[in-house]
């Protein structure tokens, strides 16, 4: 039995999705699927199968089509993850500017590797691709939203302290 989006997502999330839907022609609701998945993910922390089904139902799309979208774009989170997801860009420009050092420091400090979550559920570490901000690397993205640039072991320490 599919849970409806109405029962699964908060009124606020649904209002946000409706706002996205309104950007597109009336017969093009699926255009809002990327935003809808993002909004659902922000609320739930990750995209559980039931969440994907409810988004599909809300937008009148085949569930598998929504799942295709959720698995195509890197920033959708298809398994549970830590409260703070930290995605470090390791692509060449960032690498040249010291991303590997920063990544190693993060791994060592958190005691986890890329794709892993700390036992206390606080942090998940991910390797990312180019974030289009290379000039300020090394950098990381916090919870798919906030960019932290010019990272060094010192700024990493400060960042981790702030993220409870």
């Amino acid at each position: 039995m599919t849970l409806s989006a109405q029962s699964l997502l908060s009124a606020d999330s649904l209002a946000q999705i409706d706002k996205e839907v309104a950007k597109y022609p009336a017969d093009q609701k699926p255009s809002a699927v990327m935003a809808a998945l993002r909004i659902a993910q922000v609320e739930k922390g990750w995209l559980a199968p039931a969440t994907i089904e409810s988004v599909a139902q809300y937008l009148g799309m085949p569930t598998i089509a929504v799942y295709e979208v959720a698995t195509f774009y890197n920033m959708y989170q298809l398994e549970p993850c830590g409260r703070h997801k930290i995605t470090v860009c390791t692509n060449l420009p960032c690498q040249l500017q010291g991303a590997d050092t920063v990544a190693d420091y993060l791994k060592q400090k958190l005691g986890i590797g890329f794709g892993e979550t700390t036992p206390d559920g606080r942090f998940t570490l991910k390797e990312g691709e180019c974030m289009g901000t290379c000039g300020s690397g090394p950098l990381c993205l916090h919870n798919n939203h906030t960019m932290h640039a010019h990272l060094s072991p010192e700024t990493v320490d400060k960042l981790l302290d702030e993220l409870k």
Partner: peptide, 17 residues
């Protein structure tokens, strides 16, 4: 649409939801 191709690149797989 019961079958789709979730995933990207080499990891694309034909599957149902």
């Amino acid at each position: 649409m019961e079958l789709g191709m979730p995933g990207r690149g080499e990891h694309t797989e034909v599957m149902p939801f």
